[in-house]
Amino acid sequence: MSSFQFYSAKKLLNLIQDSKAMNICDIMLKAEEELTRNNRDRIFENMRYRLSIMKDAISSELSNEKKSKSKMIGGESEKMKEIKNENIFLSEIMRRACEYSLAVMEKNARMGRIVAAPTAGSSGILPGGIIATEECLHLSEDKSVEALFTAGAIGIIIAHNATFSAAEAGCQAEVGASSAMAAAALSSMRGMSPEQCINAAALALKNMLGLACDPIGGLVEVPCVKRNALGISHAMTASDMSLAGIKSVVPFDEVVLAMNNVAKSMGENIRETSRGGLAVSDTAKEIIERIREKRRK
């Protein structure tokens, strides 16, 4: 019996070739149909529902300048929206992606409802990139839903060979994985080939290897919120590089294994314990003291 399950990018590309599928999204849908015995429409609509939650998170959070409980976060997306400078480096699509990523992460920090993609700490990257691209390139909503399946396919390869747990592998497994997924997803939205999509994911993930998870006070706020905006800009750069024909010397599957290997060398202090890195900076100590005092009152 032929199967559409895949555990590597190599297998994914072979499946696309053998089944004459159009793209990564097609194979991902077939694999999900096979795994869950749900029909294609139901699966597609389920993903559309997730996209709608992502859109809600963005629209409800924009212009919300309220600070989070810790006072570390709040109003970032608004600032990114209002930026007016003729010398701005970012293109409109990238600026908007950053604004939206920040909005989702602010929502998350306030215990709002979001879609983990693949985790909550990296939940701003995909919505930011995909929705900004949909708007700026005037694409149909279906294209965004398809992009989420493409992102999911990249995520599944990472899940099978590594992890999304920052406690095991640091932030490379969260923002790193998410930006690789976004690089492929956004590439697919502008019609790049499956090989180019996977190459973009490889370029994005490579540059995130070894990223520490060192949140201040254990909160998903600093550096997580801003790192999502930087993560989506990073994914867009990777996609543009792939579009330009720049190839990752190390193929995607090997980059994922390298991520695992790097994780083994990372100390516990920088794996979501808040015992190292930014979490023990002088500023972090002051903030934690302030939060504790507030709690005692």
Binding site: R50, G112, V115, T119, L148, A153, G155, I156, V220
Partner: peptide, 21 residues
């Protein structure tokens, strides 16, 4: 086995997928 909705999901209340959801 991983469903695509394990990756693009879960739908959850923040802030952390492993520490909250």
């Amino acid at each position: 086995t991983w469903s695509v909705f394990d990756i693009i999901g879960p739908i959850m209340v923040g802030p952390s997928s492993s520490h909250t959801a």
